[in-house]
Amino acid sequence: MFNETLVILQRELWKAFAQTFVMMGISFVLSLILGLALGFVLYLTETPAFYPKKSLNAVAAAIVNFIRSIPFIILVVFTLPFTFWLVGTKIGPIAASVPMTISATVFLARLVESSLKETDPGVIEAALASGARPWLIIRKVLLVEAAPSIARAVTVVFINLIGASAMAGMVGGGGIGNLAVQYGYYRYETGVMLFTIVVLVIVVQLSQYLGDKVAKHLSH
């Protein structure tokens, strides 16, 4: 069994790694940008000191809640037509990164919103009293004060994405999640499954460690 495991890993592992890397890379970078932006939209449109816009806030919040209520595995299937329209295919790592991006974006947006809400209102008030325009306050006060908390939020979303990549892999995305299911589950190659678990545990531990390190560096 041990030999067989090695053979399979030698043949499949690098391809699986590459696929996971593509899925994770695309969805992490995109959701980071979109999630931060959406998080700020949620916060800024709700806060009287910035750009209070009830209608926009309500729409954004409703969309976020709608997507957040769909379990990821169902979201993958639900978004298939959209994915096909967008990237021209329904399978492979690039297709998988579409629902992954959507799911991670709304998740991160909510976490960023709550990080921003924790900013001491007195500090924002002092910035307003300084005569600063909203954009300066966003960059130099909100972003700076919420940075440690946002770093922790990004860590949570990244680790969540690793889980999502495994699920997306199962429904045609490829990657190490797919490897575990294809061999570990359908072909009873427990060794392959155990190996992927070890890899994932290491990656998650490392991500959390790095995320904590960054958050600590940003907070004073």
Partner: peptide
């Protein structure tokens, strides 16, 4: 202000 209201991370 009473509570200074400085940006902690700056």
């Amino acid at each position: 202000f009473q509570h200074f209201n400085l940006v902690r991370n700056s």
